[in-house]
Measured scan of single mutants.
Amino acid sequence: MEVRTIKVFTTVDNINLHTQVVDMSMTYGQQFGPTYLDGADVTKIKPHNSHEGKTFYVLPNDDTLRVEAFEYYHTTDPSFLGRYMSALNHTKKWKYPQVNGLTSIKWADNNCYLATALLTLQQIELKFNPPALQDAYYRARAGEAANFCALILAYCNKTVGELGDVRETMSYLFQHANLDSCKRVLNVVCKTCGQQQTTLKGVEAVMYMGTLSYEQFKKGVQIPCTCGKQATKYLVQQESPFVMMSAPPAQYELKHGTFTCASEYTGNYQCGHYKHITSKETLYCIDGALLTKSSEYKGPITDVFYKENSYTTTIK
């Protein structure tokens, strides 16, 4: 009895394709271990004539594949690729409408935090270190965002349907971005203890939790000093293409032309909904596939993004 075979390709990165001759009487799992086709788990399936010449994702289970996976995804987590594939199996079914010149995501599976993050990423200057993220990001900007969303979920250790947080998501993504040249110098002034300067680099240099107003941050924000008295913390120097200011959701007025974009969060910790506000020729609110415009805006804002380049204080 002759062994019926077909020729397929296996890959971990969709760049390096490895030619395989597979036995049609055995499952993919018996031949390769966990195997995925377009995100779908085909591990328990036997090869079919229609699979001839198709590319299958496999887990990096030998040295060659491990090197290829690390170079593309910059992670050695053995569960990463499987999590990416199972997320992709959902995100490829989502709709990605162009809204006001940006790629958004039609609401499904509690994905409003991903839509808000995706919209924000198209408006701030950011370059990702893992080629996987950078490639998928370019495709997302062009309207094909399924891979990018699935990668975000995998890097953030999230599953489809789980509630997510924009600030946490951005923080994970910033860790995989090139923020080497970003720098922030802060000064804390206390009447009792004097003053202390701190220099922050990388992710810490672009994120701040405690106030939404970048102007206020430049002037000074009140913080408790270690001595128990009130101290003032203010920005001395900022070198970065953008800054992200966050605070627990509270009524906040966004003035046209003073910011790049913002995240609105309605609801409580267990259950809520994100919308995205962007400042173009007027203010726009993007909620999944829905767009509304207004000249002014007041609502429960939790993150505001500002364009920056270089700032030095005039406070002496």
Rank of each mutant, 00 (worst) to 15 (best):
L235D: 00
C112Y: 03
E52Q: 11
V185A: 01
T75V: 08
T27K: 10
I152K: 04
T64K: 14
L118K: 03
D41H: 10
L290S: 13
Q31K: 13
H74M: 14
T5C: 15
I286A: 00
L163G: 13
D63W: 06
L235V: 11
G101H: 08
T302P: 01
L81D: 04
G33Q: 04
M245L: 11
P78Q: 10
T19P: 13
G161C: 06
T11R: 04
Q20A: 14
D180P: 01
G82Q: 15
T27C: 14
Q270R: 08
A69G: 06
G299K: 02
V236M: 12
L186H: 08
G202T: 00
I223H: 14
K7E: 13
S171E: 08
Q230P: 12
Q20Y: 10
T282A: 14
A250R: 10
H176A: 05
E281Y: 01
Q196H: 12
G164L: 04
Y113S: 01
R66E: 11
F128I: 04
L88A: 05
R167P: 02
G257D: 09
F32S: 07
Y96Q: 02
I105R: 03
S279E: 01
N309Y: 09
G101W: 05
V8W: 02
Y265E: 00
Y155S: 02
L88F: 09
I315M: 15
L235S: 01
V203S: 10
K201I: 13
L81S: 06
T260S: 07
E296L: 10
G101F: 02
T232S: 07
T159I: 08
W107G: 05
D165V: 01
H276K: 00
K275G: 01
T11I: 06
L163E: 11
F128N: 03
A289K: 08
E253K: 13
T169K: 02
S79L: 13
M207S: 07
A177L: 06
T35A: 08
C190Y: 02
Y208Q: 06
D41Q: 12
K191F: 07
G143H: 04
N147D: 14
N61W: 13
L200F: 12
E2I: 10
R139H: 11
E215C: 06
D23L: 14
P131F: 03
T159Y: 12
V206R: 02
L254C: 00
T116D: 06
D41M: 10
N129G: 09
L212C: 08
D38F: 10
G164E: 01
A117P: 04
V236N: 01
T211N: 10
T120M: 08
F80V: 05
C149M: 12
S79P: 12
S279R: 03
L179V: 02
V67A: 11
V67Q: 14
T312K: 09
N111T: 02
K307D: 11
C227V: 01
L65E: 07
K298W: 11
Y208E: 09
Y96N: 05
D77I: 03
N187T: 12
Y234R: 09
G267E: 14
F32V: 13
Q222E: 12
A140G: 03
F56Q: 03
Q122L: 05
Q195C: 09
E281V: 04
I223A: 12
L17E: 10
T314H: 15
Y274S: 01
C285S: 10
T292V: 11
G39F: 09
L291R: 08
D180M: 10
T302C: 08
H276E: 02
D303E: 02
L126G: 02
T19S: 13
E168H: 15
L179T: 03
L290V: 13
T314L: 15
S240W: 00
Y172C: 10
M24L: 15
D109Q: 11
E253Y: 10
T55I: 08
V21L: 14
Q31V: 14
F174K: 00
T278H: 07
L283P: 00
N268I: 07
Y214S: 01
L212H: 06
N178S: 08
P248N: 10
E264G: 07
K229G: 15
C227I: 01
G143M: 03
V236F: 07
I124G: 03
D62H: 07
I6K: 08
G210T: 02
E308P: 13
P248H: 11
Y306I: 04
L81H: 08
M207R: 07
K127A: 14
G210Y: 00
V21I: 11
T103G: 05
K92V: 10
L59A: 07
T19E: 15
Y57N: 08
L59R: 10
T192I: 15
V203F: 14
P131K: 07
G29R: 05
D41N: 10
N147P: 14
N129Q: 12
A146R: 06
K46C: 11
D77H: 05
T11D: 02
T211H: 12
H18L: 07
Q175S: 10
G82K: 15
